[in-house]
Write a protein that binds this DNA or RNA. Structure first.
Lengths: 211, 211, 211, 211
DNA sequence: TATGAATGAGGGTTCATTCAT
DNA sequence: GATGAATGAACCCTCATTCAT
């Protein structure tokens, strides 16, 4: 890709960021080379170092900015929702739409945590914990009010988050179902799963035989 | 790690396989070097080539064998279960126990699909599709019998699989909750989510504002 | 050899080319390592890849450029020569002088065809055929005019080319005989060999006993 | 290739020798791996060391045996030929037939001298010198008797040998021309080239311009 | 701001060779 | 006589990174 004539520093920085997201999403952080990235934005690979300190910090910046954005937006989305049920629906809807809209960023933030250096990983994990903590609090509040039946809110939180996040493994904008339709389907699954006083508990299941 | 005296070929092959699973699980396929792997089993890196053709085939062998094992065991687990509800509980229980027991293999099979060469990836994806197809059939059967309320069995399948698989992101054998307890929790979430005639559908949700 | 201070890219490229010719001539393409080559020009081996795509392409570039040069110069050398005899003498003289002057290149082009990948080999073989074809045409013209007695121009072409090219197996610039003297000797051999109506044909020879 | 059942040591040794000749001829000494060679005769590569000390000695054995055979047979071929002309014809005919019959050995002996260790190379070069010396003596004898006009017998020897040897670069047994026909063609070229009192010497030729 | 030449480490892989069995 | 597991060195090549210009 030829270099954009008249590009200034800020524009180049943004181009690098976007190309980085695209290439990490497509190939993985380890598999993406800075030569590739440089070629994508029309630079020599050495020139990238005007825009970041090293490859690792590029990844960290992408992930951290994503997590900050996610947190800011979920706070917005929940503002004004008061009852646990309302808040649950808002959280689920927000999470799904965000993940369908920014698949690449989300995918990277989930898959490449492993590639972050320890200090960076810790920071990202803390941000993630805060974001997921919101859902756990919603579940606990619903339990307290008797509208949810959840014996282990932490576990259910993990379960629900995993379910919702999984959408970015297969969702395609050009697919048959609209975002709205998908939100309804998933919301039904979640609310059904946590609804109070509906179904009897699962019976004690059989043991898995080891190899 | 020093080489085990008297080790023979078969034992070395097994050691390589296990060390491979461990290191790929821990560092990722791209990040694991064959020198690391060789050191782990007490060999020179070139000696590994007695046991596989190349790094890629090591990964593929691990993933393919895992998928075959998974399929064989789920078939076993479902044998004798006839009603959709029974079969759903069996599938969920099996999937969870398998994933809690063989976390590393499962994690690799999910995360490193990206690192497989196209032909290998296609093969693995087909195997996965078959495995997940079992759940979809169960949901469809339940809908047909009127015991499940699922408008998009394919989507719900993805959702449920994601939820269940997510357990291998955080489960620790030494954790507070037993496998049995976790199975109950997840099973309740799933069965509640697909149960017929319980909750009203989610209202049309708000749109996510673009960045 | 230490790196020449102030060397720029073009100079390095040329140094690599020359060192490549020298080392391939001396050790053979297979036996020359890129570490050797890099050391010869004062680089790290990885740095060579700024200057060629891979080892094979270094060889191909050397051989192809040599063949192009050879063809361009023989065309020059033959320009203005009209009679078959004149042209034969010109071809022979040119071929010998060229081979005495650029022994290494010629040697490589002859010996390392085997080391070229199929596509490259085909290209080089075609160039060689064109160059040798010139001699064959000269012989045929001489036969047509009755000045040469050559029953199989193709075979005689191979024979003459082999004879002349062989000079680069032993010629040394510091040797007793000058290039001019050698040209005379070889030219006499060739012209004597193809001269019309001189000697009776060889009698039917004895059969070689098989081992 | 599967191992021949019931093969004994001598048979295996011979099989290795033949496979070695074939593979070195086809790929070159450096490019042939002992794994390849072992596979060709149905052995593990380590087992080859029962039959030779190392890769180098395999090459040397092949070349030395070939040179000894060549010398023994040329002595035979010349036995009974007395006049220089007779002897020249005999030498040429023998050389050509031998080279057409044992192309692989000849090719190896010519091409892989470079791959021989210094001591081995010296030995082979000496053998070759002796073999070529025969031709030189024939030329000198012919000059002494006045039947050949050769000013530099050493040079002419090189020239003639190169011409004749070149046949193994293109000869194919299934080709249009028989060995007898080819011998006649080459013999005419050689005898014409060295015949006394036929052609005027080549005029002083032009200088080759350097690049 | 960007280049482009260069580094130095390390990647996956192949090789000739050894040796206990 | 042959295996097969293993070595240790070297192979070609790619990488993130540096720095004078």
């Amino acid at each position: 890709m030829a270099r954009t004539v008249g590009s200034n520093g800020a524009r180049t920085a943004e181009a690098i960021r976007q190309a980085g997201v695209k290439l990490i999403y497509r190939h993985g952080y380890e598999a993406m080379s800075l030569r590739q990235l440089a070629a994508e934005v029309g630079l020599q690979s050495g020139s990238l170092y005007k825009y970041f300190d090293n490859k690792q910090s590029l990844l960290f910046d992408i992930v951290r900015d994503h997590m900050e954005d996610l947190q800011a937006r979920v706070d917005e989305a929940l503002a004004g929702c008061t009852t646990p049920t309302e808040r649950l629906r808002a959280y689920v809807g927000f999470h799904l739409r965000y993940h369908m809209t920014r698949m690449a960023h989300v995918f990277i933030a989930n898959m490449e945590i492993r590639s972050l250096e320890e200090a960076h990983r810790a920071e990202v994990v803390a941000m993630r914990r805060r974001y997921e903590g919101l859902l756990e609090e919603i579940l606990r509040a619903g339990v307290a009010e008797g509208v949810f039946k959840v014996t282990e809110p932490r576990v259910s939180t993990y379960a629900i988050i995993s379910m919702l996040t999984g959408i970015c493994m297969w969702y395609r904008p050009e697919g048959r179902l609209s975002q709205d339709e998908l939100v309804i389907i998933y919301t039904d699954l979640v609310t059904g799963g946590v609804a109070a006083g509906v179904l009897p508990t699962a019976a004690a299941p059989r043991q898995l035989k080891r190899a």
